[in-house]
């Protein structure tokens, strides 16, 4: 019985996760500049992949594999923000302008540590 419920749940998680991946891709295509695109890639992308890895943990029924799926998820959570932060910093320091819709800009390039 519990196997059936877990399988239904895993299927649901799979659909949700791939939907988030698709939305991240749409966001990367639709948003206007580098910095806003980074929001879509780092958040929706991490969420989608994380949900799919969680779905594996629900169908595995093996302690080692469940732990490994969780480890992969945690690893993803640790690396995704670092990658996004590094890219945003590199883009800003090399002078890639944000979109004209930007309403406030308190970032001063002189105060940053190159």
């Amino acid at each position: 019985m519990i196997v059936t419920i877990f399988q239904y749940f895993a299927g649901f998680l799979m659909l949700l996760g791939s939907a988030f991946c698709l939305l991240a891709a749409v966001g990367i295509l639709r948003l206007p500049d580098i910095y806003t695109r980074m929001h879509a890639a780092s958040k929706a992308g991490t969420m989608g992949t994380g949900l799919l890895l969680t779905a594996i943990a629900f169908v595995a029924f093996d302690g080692a594999i469940i732990l490994r799926a969780i480890a992969a998820f945690v690893f993803l959570l640790l690396t995704a923000p670092v990658a996004a932060h590094l890219l945003a910093r590199a883009a800003f320091l090399t002078g890639h302008k944000p979109t004209e819709m930007t309403i406030i800009n308190e970032l001063d390039i002189k105060k940053l540590d190159k």
Partner: peptide, 25 residues
């Protein structure tokens, strides 16, 4: 610009991981 492409490549890796996860299940 180059950073745009790098972000897209980053997302491509995530989608690749998602693919593998679906293959696993």
């Amino acid at each position: 610009s180059l950073p745009d492409r790098v972000i897209a490549l980053d997302l491509l890796v995530y989608i690749g991981i998602s693919y593998i996860a679906v293959v696993v299940i």
